[in-house]
Design a protein around this nucleic acid. Sequence first.
DNA 1: ACGGTTCTAAAACGAACGCTCTATCCGATA
DNA 2: TATCGGATAGAGCGTTCGTTTTAGAACCGT
Lengths: 207, 207
Amino acid sequence: MRTTTRRAAADGPDSGLGTRERIVRTASRLMQRQGYDGTGIKQISQEADATLGSVYHFFPGGKQELAVEAIRHGDQEFAAFLTQILNSVPDPAEAIESAANTLARDMRRTDWVDGCPVTATALGTSTRAPDIQHAAAEAFARWRALVEAKLREAGIDGPHAHDLAHTVISTLEGAELASQVSRNETPLRLAGTHLAQLIRAYRNATP
Amino acid sequence: MRTTTRRAAADGPDSGLGTRERIVRTASRLMQRQGYDGTGIKQISQEADATLGSVYHFFPGGKQELAVEAIRHGDQEFAAFLTQILNSVPDPAEAIESAANTLARDMRRTDWVDGCPVTATALGTSTRAPDIQHAAAEAFARWRALVEAKLREAGIDGPHAHDLAHTVISTLEGAELASQVSRNETPLRLAGTHLAQLIRAYRNATP
DNA sequence: ACGGTTCTAAAACGAACGCTCTATCCGATA
DNA sequence: TATCGGATAGAGCGTTCGTTTTAGAACCGT
Protein backbone atom coordinates (compact mmCIF):
# COMPACT_ATOMS: atom_id res chain seq x y z
CA MET A 1 0.00 0.00 0.00
CA ARG A 2 1.37 3.36 -1.01
CA THR A 3 1.59 5.85 1.81
CA THR A 4 0.41 9.37 1.23
CA THR A 5 3.27 11.81 1.02
CA ARG A 6 3.23 15.45 2.00
CA ARG A 7 2.93 16.59 -1.55
CA ALA A 8 0.41 14.08 -2.71
CA ALA A 9 -1.55 15.02 -5.78
CA ALA A 10 -3.55 13.20 -8.39
CA ASP A 11 -1.76 12.69 -11.64
CA GLY A 12 -2.94 15.91 -13.20
CA PRO A 13 -0.91 18.50 -15.08
CA ASP A 14 -0.07 20.19 -11.80
CA SER A 15 1.12 17.12 -9.95
CA GLY A 16 4.62 17.43 -8.61
CA LEU A 17 4.03 21.01 -7.58
CA GLY A 18 3.66 22.24 -4.03
CA THR A 19 0.22 22.41 -2.53
CA ARG A 20 0.07 26.18 -2.55
CA GLU A 21 0.99 26.41 -6.21
CA ARG A 22 -1.51 23.71 -7.08
CA ILE A 23 -4.27 25.63 -5.32
CA VAL A 24 -3.43 28.88 -7.10
CA ARG A 25 -3.35 27.29 -10.53
CA THR A 26 -6.60 25.45 -9.97
CA ALA A 27 -8.29 28.59 -8.69
CA SER A 28 -7.04 30.56 -11.68
CA ARG A 29 -8.28 27.97 -14.15
CA LEU A 30 -11.68 27.54 -12.52
CA MET A 31 -12.34 31.25 -12.07
CA GLN A 32 -11.29 31.84 -15.66
CA ARG A 33 -14.10 29.53 -16.75
CA GLN A 34 -16.76 30.08 -14.12
CA GLY A 35 -16.07 33.50 -12.70
CA TYR A 36 -15.47 34.46 -9.08
CA ASP A 37 -18.92 33.78 -7.71
CA GLY A 38 -19.37 30.69 -9.83
CA THR A 39 -16.35 29.01 -8.27
CA GLY A 40 -16.51 27.55 -4.78
CA ILE A 41 -13.64 27.10 -2.37
CA LYS A 42 -14.55 23.48 -1.93
CA GLN A 43 -14.48 22.88 -5.67
CA ILE A 44 -11.04 24.46 -5.83
CA SER A 45 -9.72 22.35 -2.96
CA GLN A 46 -11.11 19.17 -4.50
CA GLU A 47 -9.75 19.74 -7.99
CA ALA A 48 -6.40 20.81 -6.59
CA ASP A 49 -6.25 17.64 -4.49
CA ALA A 50 -5.93 19.74 -1.39
CA THR A 51 -8.16 20.06 1.62
CA LEU A 52 -10.09 22.99 2.94
CA GLY A 53 -7.61 23.22 5.81
CA SER A 54 -4.74 23.64 3.37
CA VAL A 55 -6.53 26.35 1.45
CA TYR A 56 -7.18 28.43 4.55
CA HIS A 57 -3.70 27.71 5.83
CA PHE A 58 -2.08 29.22 2.76
CA PHE A 59 -4.71 31.88 2.19
CA PRO A 60 -5.99 33.14 5.53
CA GLY A 61 -7.67 35.97 3.68
CA GLY A 62 -10.09 33.46 2.23
CA LYS A 63 -11.61 33.54 -1.20
CA GLN A 64 -10.68 37.15 -1.94
CA GLU A 65 -7.00 36.63 -1.25
CA LEU A 66 -7.07 33.49 -3.33
CA ALA A 67 -8.72 35.36 -6.21
CA VAL A 68 -6.02 38.02 -6.15
CA GLU A 69 -3.34 35.34 -6.39
CA ALA A 70 -5.28 33.63 -9.18
CA ILE A 71 -5.41 36.87 -11.15
CA ARG A 72 -1.69 37.44 -10.63
CA HIS A 73 -1.05 33.96 -11.91
CA GLY A 74 -3.13 34.59 -15.02
CA ASP A 75 -1.38 37.91 -15.43
CA GLN A 76 2.03 36.26 -15.51
CA GLU A 77 0.80 33.52 -17.78
CA PHE A 78 -0.47 35.91 -20.44
CA ALA A 79 2.55 38.17 -20.04
CA ALA A 80 4.80 35.20 -20.74
CA PHE A 81 2.76 34.35 -23.81
CA LEU A 82 3.00 37.92 -25.09
CA THR A 83 6.71 38.16 -24.37
CA GLN A 84 7.41 34.95 -26.19
CA ILE A 85 5.64 36.08 -29.35
CA LEU A 86 6.97 39.63 -29.28
CA ASN A 87 10.50 38.31 -28.94
CA SER A 88 10.24 35.73 -31.67
CA VAL A 89 8.58 37.87 -34.35
CA PRO A 90 10.62 40.96 -35.27
CA ASP A 91 7.88 42.98 -36.94
CA PRO A 92 5.39 44.27 -34.35
CA ALA A 93 2.43 44.14 -36.72
CA GLU A 94 3.12 40.53 -37.58
CA ALA A 95 3.71 39.72 -33.93
CA ILE A 96 0.32 41.05 -32.81
CA GLU A 97 -1.42 39.33 -35.68
CA SER A 98 0.30 36.10 -34.75
CA ALA A 99 -0.76 36.55 -31.13
CA ALA A 100 -4.38 36.98 -32.16
CA ASN A 101 -4.27 33.91 -34.36
CA THR A 102 -2.72 31.84 -31.60
CA LEU A 103 -5.39 32.98 -29.17
CA ALA A 104 -8.05 32.03 -31.72
CA ARG A 105 -6.59 28.59 -32.17
CA ASP A 106 -6.29 27.99 -28.43
CA MET A 107 -9.83 29.18 -27.93
CA ARG A 108 -11.23 26.75 -30.44
CA ARG A 109 -9.06 23.94 -29.08
CA THR A 110 -10.57 24.34 -25.62
CA ASP A 111 -14.04 24.51 -27.18
CA TRP A 112 -14.37 28.18 -26.27
CA VAL A 113 -14.07 27.55 -22.57
CA ASP A 114 -10.79 29.25 -21.70
CA GLY A 115 -11.06 32.99 -22.21
CA CYS A 116 -8.95 35.70 -20.63
CA PRO A 117 -7.76 34.47 -17.24
CA VAL A 118 -8.29 37.87 -15.67
CA THR A 119 -11.53 39.15 -17.14
CA ALA A 120 -13.92 36.54 -15.81
CA THR A 121 -12.49 36.76 -12.31
CA ALA A 122 -12.49 40.54 -12.17
CA LEU A 123 -15.86 41.19 -13.79
CA GLY A 124 -18.60 41.60 -11.25
CA THR A 125 -16.27 41.76 -8.26
CA SER A 126 -14.78 45.18 -8.87
CA THR A 127 -17.20 47.02 -6.63
CA ARG A 128 -17.09 44.52 -3.80
CA ALA A 129 -13.38 43.77 -3.76
CA PRO A 130 -10.99 46.60 -4.60
CA ASP A 131 -8.04 44.22 -4.21
CA ILE A 132 -9.26 42.12 -7.11
CA GLN A 133 -9.99 45.13 -9.27
CA HIS A 134 -6.53 46.48 -8.55
CA ALA A 135 -4.80 43.22 -9.45
CA ALA A 136 -6.71 43.11 -12.74
CA ALA A 137 -5.79 46.70 -13.54
CA GLU A 138 -2.14 45.85 -12.91
CA ALA A 139 -2.38 42.95 -15.32
CA PHE A 140 -3.77 45.12 -18.09
CA ALA A 141 -1.08 47.71 -17.46
CA ARG A 142 1.71 45.16 -17.61
CA TRP A 143 0.50 43.70 -20.90
CA ARG A 144 0.14 47.17 -22.33
CA ALA A 145 3.69 48.04 -21.31
CA LEU A 146 5.02 44.97 -23.11
CA VAL A 147 3.31 45.99 -26.33
CA GLU A 148 4.35 49.60 -25.97
CA ALA A 149 8.01 48.64 -25.60
CA LYS A 150 7.83 46.52 -28.73
CA LEU A 151 6.27 49.37 -30.71
CA ARG A 152 8.95 51.78 -29.55
CA GLU A 153 11.67 49.39 -30.56
CA ALA A 154 10.12 49.30 -34.00
CA GLY A 155 10.57 53.03 -34.33
CA ILE A 156 7.14 54.31 -33.40
CA ASP A 157 7.51 57.42 -31.30
CA GLY A 158 6.57 57.52 -27.63
CA PRO A 159 3.06 58.99 -27.51
CA HIS A 160 1.89 57.00 -30.51
CA ALA A 161 3.31 53.77 -29.11
CA HIS A 162 1.59 54.43 -25.82
CA ASP A 163 -1.79 55.07 -27.42
CA LEU A 164 -1.50 52.16 -29.83
CA ALA A 165 -0.62 49.77 -27.03
CA HIS A 166 -3.84 50.71 -25.28
CA THR A 167 -5.92 49.84 -28.31
CA VAL A 168 -3.99 46.66 -29.04
CA ILE A 169 -4.77 45.28 -25.59
CA SER A 170 -8.36 46.51 -25.63
CA THR A 171 -9.02 44.99 -29.02
CA LEU A 172 -7.37 41.67 -28.24
CA GLU A 173 -9.37 41.48 -25.04
CA GLY A 174 -12.65 42.38 -26.71
CA ALA A 175 -12.07 40.05 -29.62
CA GLU A 176 -11.31 37.20 -27.27
CA LEU A 177 -14.57 37.94 -25.52
CA ALA A 178 -16.50 38.13 -28.79
CA SER A 179 -14.94 34.91 -30.05
CA GLN A 180 -15.79 33.13 -26.83
CA VAL A 181 -19.39 34.29 -26.73
CA SER A 182 -19.94 33.69 -30.45
CA ARG A 183 -17.98 30.43 -30.45
CA ASN A 184 -16.23 31.64 -33.57
CA GLU A 185 -12.61 32.42 -34.40
CA THR A 186 -13.53 35.28 -36.72
CA PRO A 187 -13.48 38.17 -34.22
CA LEU A 188 -9.95 37.30 -33.08
CA ARG A 189 -8.60 36.74 -36.57
CA LEU A 190 -10.04 40.01 -37.86
CA ALA A 191 -8.78 41.84 -34.81
CA GLY A 192 -5.30 40.62 -35.65
CA THR A 193 -5.61 41.77 -39.24
CA HIS A 194 -6.87 45.23 -38.38
CA LEU A 195 -4.43 45.78 -35.54
CA ALA A 196 -1.55 44.88 -37.84
CA GLN A 197 -2.88 47.35 -40.37
CA LEU A 198 -3.13 50.07 -37.74
CA ILE A 199 0.38 49.45 -36.50
CA ARG A 200 1.81 49.56 -40.02
CA ALA A 201 0.10 52.88 -40.63
CA TYR A 202 1.90 54.36 -37.63
CA ARG A 203 5.23 52.77 -38.39
CA ASN A 204 5.20 54.15 -41.91
CA ALA A 205 4.23 57.57 -40.58
CA THR A 206 7.17 57.78 -38.15
CA PRO A 207 10.29 56.62 -39.94
CA MET B 1 -54.57 53.26 4.93
CA ARG B 2 -53.55 52.81 1.34
CA THR B 3 -54.45 49.51 -0.20
CA THR B 4 -51.89 47.69 -2.30
CA THR B 5 -52.75 47.80 -5.98
CA ARG B 6 -51.85 45.22 -8.58
CA ARG B 7 -49.02 47.24 -9.98
CA ALA B 8 -47.56 48.62 -6.81
CA ALA B 9 -43.93 49.65 -6.97
CA ALA B 10 -41.61 51.86 -4.98
CA ASP B 11 -40.88 55.20 -6.53
CA GLY B 12 -37.87 54.05 -8.47
CA PRO B 13 -37.00 54.77 -12.10
CA ASP B 14 -39.05 51.74 -13.15
CA SER B 15 -42.17 52.57 -11.20
CA GLY B 16 -45.27 52.74 -13.33
CA LEU B 17 -44.17 49.73 -15.33
CA GLY B 18 -45.72 46.31 -15.13
CA THR B 19 -44.28 43.80 -12.71
CA ARG B 20 -42.75 41.64 -15.39
CA GLU B 21 -40.97 44.54 -17.03
CA ARG B 22 -39.75 45.77 -13.66
CA ILE B 23 -38.27 42.37 -12.89
CA VAL B 24 -36.49 42.15 -16.24
CA ARG B 25 -34.96 45.61 -15.94
CA THR B 26 -33.83 45.01 -12.40
CA ALA B 27 -32.30 41.66 -13.32
CA SER B 28 -30.51 43.20 -16.27
CA ARG B 29 -29.08 46.02 -14.18
CA LEU B 30 -27.98 43.79 -11.32
CA MET B 31 -26.41 41.11 -13.50
CA GLN B 32 -24.63 43.80 -15.47
CA ARG B 33 -22.91 44.86 -12.25
CA GLN B 34 -22.58 41.61 -10.35
CA GLY B 35 -22.68 38.89 -12.96
CA TYR B 36 -25.00 35.92 -13.14
CA ASP B 37 -23.80 34.01 -10.11
CA GLY B 38 -23.31 37.16 -8.08
CA THR B 39 -26.96 38.11 -8.39
CA GLY B 40 -29.62 36.31 -6.38
CA ILE B 41 -33.26 35.86 -7.32
CA LYS B 42 -34.28 37.25 -3.97
CA GLN B 43 -32.19 40.36 -4.47
CA ILE B 44 -33.83 40.88 -7.85
CA SER B 45 -37.33 40.47 -6.45
CA GLN B 46 -36.61 42.86 -3.60
CA GLU B 47 -35.10 45.62 -5.72
CA ALA B 48 -37.86 45.24 -8.30
CA ASP B 49 -40.48 45.52 -5.57
CA ALA B 50 -41.88 42.18 -6.58
CA THR B 51 -42.18 38.97 -4.67
CA LEU B 52 -40.64 35.62 -5.28
CA GLY B 53 -44.03 34.33 -6.37
CA SER B 54 -44.22 36.96 -9.10
CA VAL B 55 -40.77 36.13 -10.37
CA TYR B 56 -41.54 32.44 -10.73
CA HIS B 57 -44.95 33.22 -12.14
CA PHE B 58 -43.52 35.23 -15.01
CA PHE B 59 -40.37 33.14 -15.39
CA PRO B 60 -41.19 29.51 -14.69
CA GLY B 61 -37.81 28.63 -16.14
CA GLY B 62 -36.22 30.21 -13.08
CA LYS B 63 -32.97 32.10 -13.01
CA GLN B 64 -31.78 30.96 -16.42
CA GLU B 65 -34.88 32.12 -18.23
CA LEU B 66 -34.69 35.41 -16.37
CA ALA B 67 -31.06 35.83 -17.39
CA VAL B 68 -31.91 35.28 -21.03
CA GLU B 69 -34.57 37.99 -20.85
CA ALA B 70 -32.14 40.27 -19.04
CA ILE B 71 -29.58 39.83 -21.80
CA ARG B 72 -32.20 40.51 -24.46
CA HIS B 73 -33.13 43.68 -22.64
CA GLY B 74 -29.52 44.82 -22.51
CA ASP B 75 -29.19 43.87 -26.15
CA GLN B 76 -32.06 46.14 -27.17
CA GLU B 77 -30.81 48.89 -24.91
CA PHE B 78 -27.38 49.01 -26.49
CA ALA B 79 -28.83 48.57 -29.98
CA ALA B 80 -31.00 51.62 -29.40
CA PHE B 81 -27.98 53.58 -28.24
CA LEU B 82 -25.99 52.59 -31.30
CA THR B 83 -28.86 53.30 -33.67
CA GLN B 84 -29.38 56.73 -32.22
CA ILE B 85 -25.75 57.73 -32.67
CA LEU B 86 -25.36 56.15 -36.10
CA ASN B 87 -28.47 57.97 -37.32
CA SER B 88 -27.53 61.34 -35.93
CA VAL B 89 -23.88 61.45 -37.08
CA PRO B 90 -23.51 61.14 -40.87
CA ASP B 91 -19.84 60.19 -41.00
CA PRO B 92 -19.34 56.62 -39.74
CA ALA B 93 -15.87 57.31 -38.32
CA GLU B 94 -17.16 60.27 -36.35
CA ALA B 95 -20.17 58.28 -35.22
CA ILE B 96 -18.10 55.43 -33.78
CA GLU B 97 -15.74 57.87 -32.10
CA SER B 98 -18.70 59.67 -30.61
CA ALA B 99 -20.12 56.38 -29.37
CA ALA B 100 -16.85 55.52 -27.65
CA ASN B 101 -16.68 58.92 -26.01
CA THR B 102 -20.25 58.66 -24.80
CA LEU B 103 -19.57 55.23 -23.34
CA ALA B 104 -16.50 56.64 -21.59
CA ARG B 105 -18.50 59.49 -20.10
CA ASP B 106 -21.29 57.20 -18.93
CA MET B 107 -18.80 54.82 -17.45
CA ARG B 108 -17.14 57.52 -15.38
CA ARG B 109 -20.51 58.93 -14.35
CA THR B 110 -21.57 55.61 -12.84
CA ASP B 111 -18.19 55.34 -11.14
CA TRP B 112 -17.16 52.49 -13.41
CA VAL B 113 -19.96 50.25 -12.23
CA ASP B 114 -22.08 49.87 -15.37
CA GLY B 115 -20.18 48.02 -18.04
CA CYS B 116 -21.59 46.11 -20.96
CA PRO B 117 -25.02 44.75 -20.03
CA VAL B 118 -24.38 41.48 -21.80
CA THR B 119 -20.78 40.63 -21.03
CA ALA B 120 -21.01 40.25 -17.27
CA THR B 121 -24.10 38.09 -17.49
CA ALA B 122 -22.77 35.83 -20.21
CA LEU B 123 -19.22 35.36 -18.93
CA GLY B 124 -18.85 32.26 -16.87
CA THR B 125 -22.23 30.85 -17.74
CA SER B 126 -21.57 29.93 -21.37
CA THR B 127 -20.68 26.33 -20.62
CA ARG B 128 -23.50 25.72 -18.17
CA ALA B 129 -26.32 27.51 -19.96
CA PRO B 130 -26.34 27.40 -23.75
CA ASP B 131 -29.46 29.58 -23.79
CA ILE B 132 -27.58 32.43 -22.19
CA GLN B 133 -24.58 32.02 -24.45
CA HIS B 134 -26.87 32.03 -27.46
CA ALA B 135 -28.69 35.19 -26.39
CA ALA B 136 -25.36 36.93 -25.90
CA ALA B 137 -24.13 35.84 -29.32
CA GLU B 138 -27.29 37.22 -30.88
CA ALA B 139 -26.69 40.55 -29.17
CA PHE B 140 -23.18 40.81 -30.57
CA ALA B 141 -24.43 39.87 -34.02
CA ARG B 142 -27.17 42.50 -33.97
CA TRP B 143 -24.81 45.28 -32.93
CA ARG B 144 -22.36 44.22 -35.60
CA ALA B 145 -25.09 44.30 -38.23
CA LEU B 146 -25.99 47.86 -37.27
CA VAL B 147 -22.39 49.00 -37.70
CA GLU B 148 -21.96 47.06 -40.93
CA ALA B 149 -25.04 48.71 -42.47
CA LYS B 150 -23.72 52.12 -41.58
CA LEU B 151 -20.34 51.38 -43.14
CA ARG B 152 -21.97 50.15 -46.34
CA GLU B 153 -24.07 53.29 -46.56
CA ALA B 154 -20.87 55.28 -46.34
CA GLY B 155 -19.57 53.56 -49.43
CA ILE B 156 -17.37 50.86 -47.97
CA ASP B 157 -17.78 47.68 -49.96
CA GLY B 158 -19.45 44.61 -48.54
CA PRO B 159 -16.61 42.35 -47.35
CA HIS B 160 -14.65 45.25 -45.89
CA ALA B 161 -17.72 46.60 -44.10
CA HIS B 162 -18.40 43.16 -42.65
CA ASP B 163 -14.87 42.72 -41.38
CA LEU B 164 -14.61 46.23 -40.02
CA ALA B 165 -17.88 45.89 -38.14
CA HIS B 166 -16.47 42.86 -36.35
CA THR B 167 -13.46 44.78 -35.13
CA VAL B 168 -15.50 47.85 -34.22
CA ILE B 169 -17.68 45.83 -31.87
CA SER B 170 -14.77 43.81 -30.49
CA THR B 171 -12.74 46.92 -29.80
CA LEU B 172 -15.60 48.85 -28.21
CA GLU B 173 -16.35 45.87 -26.03
CA GLY B 174 -12.74 45.36 -25.01
CA ALA B 175 -12.14 49.03 -24.37
CA GLU B 176 -15.22 49.21 -22.20
CA LEU B 177 -13.86 46.30 -20.23
CA ALA B 178 -10.41 47.86 -19.95
CA SER B 179 -11.86 51.19 -18.90
CA GLN B 180 -14.00 49.55 -16.26
CA VAL B 181 -11.20 47.46 -14.80
CA SER B 182 -8.68 50.31 -14.92
CA ARG B 183 -11.20 52.90 -13.78
CA ASN B 184 -9.96 55.16 -16.53
CA GLU B 185 -11.58 56.69 -19.60
CA THR B 186 -8.42 56.40 -21.67
CA PRO B 187 -8.98 52.94 -23.22
CA LEU B 188 -12.40 53.92 -24.55
CA ARG B 189 -11.30 57.29 -25.85
CA LEU B 190 -8.27 55.85 -27.64
CA ALA B 191 -10.39 53.05 -29.05
CA GLY B 192 -12.66 55.67 -30.57
CA THR B 193 -9.73 57.51 -32.09
CA HIS B 194 -8.14 54.45 -33.62
CA LEU B 195 -11.40 52.97 -34.88
CA ALA B 196 -12.21 56.24 -36.61
CA GLN B 197 -8.78 56.18 -38.19
CA LEU B 198 -9.26 52.61 -39.39
CA ILE B 199 -12.67 53.38 -40.87
CA ARG B 200 -11.33 56.42 -42.70
CA ALA B 201 -8.55 54.33 -44.20
CA TYR B 202 -11.12 51.95 -45.68
CA ARG B 203 -13.46 54.68 -46.84
CA ASN B 204 -10.69 56.44 -48.69
CA ALA B 205 -9.58 53.16 -50.24
CA THR B 206 -13.03 52.34 -51.67
CA PRO B 207 -14.44 55.51 -53.24
C1' DA C 1 -73.02 38.70 -8.33
C1' DC C 2 -70.06 35.10 -9.56
C1' DG C 3 -66.51 31.66 -11.44
C1' DG C 4 -62.17 31.50 -13.25
C1' DT C 5 -57.89 33.24 -14.40
C1' DT C 6 -54.07 35.99 -13.28
C1' DC C 7 -51.08 37.71 -10.13
C1' DT C 8 -49.21 38.37 -5.34
C1' DA C 9 -47.63 36.88 -0.79
C1' DA C 10 -44.63 34.42 2.21
C1' DA C 11 -43.24 30.20 4.55
C1' DA C 12 -40.33 26.34 4.03
C1' DC C 13 -37.30 22.86 1.56
C1' DG C 14 -32.73 20.71 0.63
C1' DA C 15 -28.40 21.91 -1.04
C1' DA C 16 -24.44 24.59 -1.26
C1' DC C 17 -21.96 28.55 0.28
C1' DG C 18 -17.66 30.67 2.91
C1' DC C 19 -15.50 29.92 6.87
C1' DT C 20 -14.00 28.17 11.75
C1' DC C 21 -12.56 24.79 14.53
C1' DT C 22 -10.01 20.94 16.59
C1' DA C 23 -7.39 16.89 15.84
C1' DT C 24 -3.82 14.65 13.51
C1' DC C 25 0.08 13.90 10.67
C1' DC C 26 4.82 14.47 9.11
C1' DG C 27 9.55 15.99 8.56
C1' DA C 28 13.19 18.69 10.20
C1' DT C 29 15.77 19.86 14.32
C1' DA C 30 17.87 19.02 18.98
C1' DT D 1 14.50 9.56 19.99
C1' DA D 2 11.71 13.43 21.69
C1' DT D 3 9.84 17.55 20.23
C1' DC D 4 7.80 21.20 17.84
C1' DG D 5 5.75 23.88 14.02
C1' DG D 6 4.16 23.71 9.36
C1' DA D 7 0.81 21.26 6.81
C1' DT D 8 -3.25 18.27 6.31
C1' DA D 9 -7.77 16.40 7.33
C1' DG D 10 -12.68 16.95 7.69
C1' DA D 11 -16.74 17.69 10.70
C1' DG D 12 -19.68 21.39 11.53
C1' DC D 13 -21.03 26.41 12.08
C1' DG D 14 -24.53 29.92 10.41
C1' DT D 15 -26.15 31.81 6.25
C1' DT D 16 -27.83 32.15 1.74
C1' DC D 17 -28.96 29.94 -2.49
C1' DG D 18 -32.69 28.52 -6.14
C1' DT D 19 -36.88 26.56 -6.00
C1' DT D 20 -41.46 24.68 -4.51
C1' DT D 21 -45.60 25.03 -2.27
C1' DT D 22 -49.87 26.67 -0.50
C1' DA D 23 -52.89 30.39 0.29
C1' DG D 24 -55.05 34.51 -0.76
C1' DA D 25 -56.04 38.88 -3.34
C1' DA D 26 -57.30 41.37 -7.52
C1' DC D 27 -59.33 41.44 -12.01
C1' DC D 28 -62.65 40.19 -15.91
C1' DG D 29 -66.28 38.15 -18.84
C1' DT D 30 -70.72 36.69 -18.14
